[in-house]
């Protein structure tokens, strides 16, 4: 069932051209839907419209099948976690968590019970009487999470909740969030520009660019079956190598006639080692190594070929010498894109 539905949503600020035009999106109940895209793609705007903090210029927004235009943010049964935590600085942790419950006139005994429960769940038990200024970034974000969870909302809206944290903490809280999602049985809508976060957090990923949806799919679909060059480039680290098909054709490599671009993932290519000619189901590209990066469990090579510069990720920790090497890619790992940058299925 669809928990949230956007129908022909358009959003424009003042008299500027719209940031989002005629957007249609369905978010199914119980999913963890990640809105992913570069900054300025409209992902936060979508989230804020769902929360009711931003009014849609045109179109309909439905929650549980009901049009919510004109419904106050507080009455939409959603909770939101902000990037900068947005805690009330003059209230202590407990008061921060309690504020929403008080406004809902939930009796004191019930409030106490819920706060104790949640504080334990997010590991804030001993900090309840502290002020936000006395907490670290990670602890503050936990308070923000607790403040959202305690209201038992049907939908959690998260606006880049991890981007103010340092890398180590980010990984830790990301895992906590996944656990939380499994525990709470609610719908998560999660905004991020970080594709790793999106892949790990999402059951569905909505990839956006300039206010338009480029692709919707599960993480394996988005990674394995990119529908266009944008998706191919955005997902994966480093991103997919995109080479000009013209150049490859000229080198007598088998490329479908209508293809304009050819892509392959750096981790699907193998470099060096096999001096032999490519096997039947492989293509070989010659190139010189421009740079090597030892990343611990893998080595990243930047390779200059006649077809352009590309990356190769190798799990063979024997570092190759600079110089000319051959790169082998299986035919099945090659992606072809047409003139409109859409993927061609061959």
């Amino acid at each position: 069932m669809d928990k949230i539905e956007l129908r022909n949503i358009t959003k424009a600020y003042a008299k500027n051209p719209p940031v989002i035009e005629n957007l249609n999106l369905k978010i199914s109940e119980g999913s963890s839907t990640v809105l992913l895209g570069p900054s300025g793609c409209g992902k936060s705007t979508i989230l804020r419209m769902i929360a009711g903090l931003e009014k849609e210029t045109a179109g309909e927004l439905l929650i549980d099948g009901k049009n919510v235009s004109g419904v106050e943010p507080g009455d939409r049964h959603v909770a939101m976690v902000f990037q900068n935590y947005a805690l009330y600085p003059t209230m202590n942790v407990k008061e921060n968590i309690e504020f929403g419950l008080k406004n809902l006139r939930i009796p004191k005994a019930e409030r106490e019970k819920r706060i104790q429960e949640i504080a334990k769940m997010v590991g804030l038990g001993e900090y309840l009487s502290r002020k936000p200024q006395q907490l670290s970034g990670g602890q503050r974000q936990r308070v923000a999470l607790a403040r959202a969870i305690v209201k038992k909302p049907a939908v959690f809206l998260m606006d880049e909740p991890l981007s103010n944290l340092d890398a180590k903490l980010r990984n830790q809280i990301r895992t906590d969030l996944i656990e939380l999602y499994r525990k709470l049985n609610a719908t998560f809508v999660y905004v991020t520009h970080d594709q790793v976060e999106a892949m790990s957090m999402g059951t569905d990923i909505v990839l956006l660019e300039k206010g338009e949806i480029r692709q919707i799919g599960s993480p394996p679909e988005i990674y394995g079956k990119p529908e266009n060059v944008f998706t191919a480039r955005f997902i994966g680290s480093p991103s997919m190598n995109i080479l000009s098909a013209e150049e490859l054709k000229r080198a007598d490599l088998p490329v479908p006639p209508k293809a304009k671009y050819v892509g392959f993932r750096p981790e699907k290519a193998s470099i060096g080692g096999r001096e032999k000619a490519p096997r039947e189901n492989e293509v070989a590209l010659q190139g010189t190594i421009l740079a090597r990066e030892m990343l611990g469990d893998q080595i990243l090579y930047k390779v200059q070929s006649p077809f352009g510069v590309f990356h190769v990720k190798s799990f063979d920790l024997q570092m190759l010498e600079y110089g000319t090497n051959s790169v082998l890619i299986k035919n099945s790992d090659l992606f072809y894109f047409d003139e409109e940058e859409n993927r061609m299925v061959c």
Binding site: A51, L53, P73, M80, F82, A86, L87, Y88, N103, K151
Partner: peptide, 12 residues
Amino acid sequence: DEIVEAARLDHA
């Protein structure tokens, strides 16, 4: 602004 928005979502 987020603090005010958080309060609005907190039914205030």
